[in-house]
Design a binder for these strands. Structure first.
Lengths: 210, 210
DNA sequence: GCGGATTCTCAGCAAATCCTCAGCCGACAG
DNA sequence: CTGTCGGCTGAGGATTTGCTGAGAATCCGC
């Protein structure tokens, strides 16, 4: 019903039936806005929101909640939601909030979507990457990996974290993909001194200057 | 029940059934917050809290206590707890306190776990070690050993404890590994005066200033 | 469909790391 | 002073870890 209503309003909509599927859909679809039911099988709405925010995703989120205690409201907003609608709700109300949030977000200068480390730059809006002013072309996975590393400058990320947050895999079903892609990135983006991608043997990888 | 309730709230939860197990779980799992029952077999809640704080661990702790005397309350808070909940308690109340504490902690700048002893520094997030400002490169085992010693500054650690906590071996199947690695550390990190790693003959090793 | 781009697996290689061991040295007791 | 014992160190072999290239499978735009 929601999908139909929002489509009717002119939005492009895709739906997922639980939290896990939702996370995948967000990673793949890069929506402009997420409407999230708190109660979902697998990964509930709050958890999903938290996971997204921790992974550096800033897509606006509107919660649908049956509960109405102030506590839930507060929690929802503190973990990074933008608005919430209590069930049962009128379709009109949801649509209004969706519009309000998109308008607010659109107006904000989408600054801070550009990451810089030394002479390496990644602009998430124009989806461009350059090293020392020279533009570099990356495949989708290469791009996501680099962005995740840049969002966590100076922090050592384990293969498990990378698999989980960049690939959406379980943290332990590796088979050397991470190594391969780190290799790709190094060749495309890290051929000049000082090198930025560092291997921490036995632990993982980190992106930093010195 | 607690585990289920907190999971439902979106938290990632793991449980331990006594103090000893709890200590191990904290070391392995690096939780964002600990809920600690005062009355536990093996190592009670106060003791566990004390041990963690002495080891330099600053993870927020909420106590569950059946006792309600002012003394206990005071003791709990003075040894480094962040909050406490008296039994019997409503699940909602615990959840609220957990949320309150995490929110408070989250707002603080993510004080990355840095251990310092004299001019020796170890940053666990960036996985860097330096002595007198000069960065030093350590192998995984060297790093783990040094971190363990730094978490227990001033305390003498036996070979058995080191084997157990750094290597995960049985405390008695030594063959001189510890000596070898202490040697490595001394060469890499302790070449300058004043020396920090001291041998206590017949007992073990300790890391301290004097 | 077709063809190039992309993703992922895998095996060989090189290097770092781990651990054992034997010889040496110094502390300590008698 | 001397013997014994605990601890230190260097050498080296075994093992682990990470890097790379090649290639199969898959995706995607045309």
């Amino acid at each position: 019903m929601l999908v139909a209503a929002l489509r009717y309003e002119g939005y492009e909509v895709s739906a997922a039936s639980d939290g896990a599927e939702g996370l995948k859909a967000v990673r793949d679809g890069k929506p402009d806005l997420i409407v999230l039911d708190v109660m979902m099988p697998n990964v509930d709405g709050f958890a999903m929101c938290k996971r997204l925010r921790e992974a550096g995703d800033r897509t606006p989120i509107i919660f649908l909640t049956a509960r109405d205690s102030a506590k839930d409201k507060v929690e929802g907003l503190t973990i990074g939601a933008d608005d919430y609608v209590q069930k049962p709700f009128a379709l009109d109300e949801l649509v209004a909030r969706v519009e309000a949030v998109s308008r607010r977000v659109e107006r904000e200068p989408s600054a801070s979507d550009v990451y810089k480390v030394a002479d390496l730059e990644l602009d998430d809006v124009s989806h461009r990457v350059s090293r020392g002013g020279v533009e570099v072309s990356l495949s989708p996975t290469e791009y996501n990996l680099l962005r995740y590393l840049m969002q966590n400058v100076g922090r050592v990320m384990s293969r498990g974290q990378l698999l989980e947050n960049v690939w959406g895999y379980a943290p332990d079903d590796d088979a050397g993909v991470v190594e391969t892609y780190i290799g790709y990135l190094r060749r495309k983006v890290d051929r000049v001194e000082p090198t930025l991608i560092h291997t921490i043997r036995g632990v993982g990888y980190t992106l930093r200057t010195s």
